[in-house]
Amino acid sequence: MKTSRYALKGLNVLGLLIVIAIFATPFVWMAVTSVKSLSETITFPPVWIPETIRFENFALAWDTGPFFRYFVNSLVVTLSILVLQLFTIVPAAYAFARYRFFADRALFALTMITLMIPTQLIFLPVYLQFSSWGLLDTHLALILPFAANAFAIFMLRQTFKQVPEELLEAARLDQASEWKIMYMVMVPMAKPTIITLLLFSFITHWNDYFWPLVMTTTDASRTLPVGISALTNVEGGVAWHIMMAGNMILVVPILIIFFIAQRHIIRAFVYTGVK
């Protein structure tokens, strides 16, 4: 009886370790490969521990393209999107939550429709539009379509609606103007939601590959994911160790942030996914 209980427990732990392995091994393998030599990548069966740890692979990967440029582009694009979203989302969500005005339902419906339109559906017409405006291959082409975020407006509106009416009345009796009520009373109360939404936005756009791929044609505006993807066709055949080194540069910072702020990030995604 007792032994079978222990056996079951052991089996359970073993199963969990296998689950961890399924998700961790690829990343471990990426790390291992990134410090191998070329010849060590083309042996079978594969070697797990390279003879010498070749950190120069990272430098080599970094030098295959203008990675600093890509990095700056990614940063500029992502941060601009976040700042712009902050300025469009908060007032819109507030108005939808707190005011009744002509066509408010229609405008909100329009927002909800936007929520359901993926970029994969509109890239072609938007591309044509940008090309006629001469905006192709610029940061603006990567930023403008995401200057507002329907999903965030929807979520933030829910949060604003939950603020008790009495609080607003108290503020009105305190002679606060409408703007003051919004920025001094409501926004601070919605801060956790806003941070969650921005975190979500950051990860989405930092990782985004599709949109910059479509809208950029030169390194002047390419972002990191697009730049990294070019490692698949480095001259002179595939160099797995260089490719993995390049991806390590992209993946490791995010993984570190993830394991530090795991609870918050998971909550952000689950929260935005469930509601």
């Binding site: 007032p91 507030y94 329009l110 927002t111 936007t114 017409p125 200057a147 507002a148």
Partner: peptide, 19 residues
């Protein structure tokens, strides 16, 4: 208050669908 967001939606999501 809603105008900036709505303009972005119309310009980059609604209109392109029509186009």
């Amino acid at each position: 208050m809603v105008a900036p967001a709505i303009i972005v939606f119309v310009l980059f999501f609604i209109y392109p669908i029509g186009y």
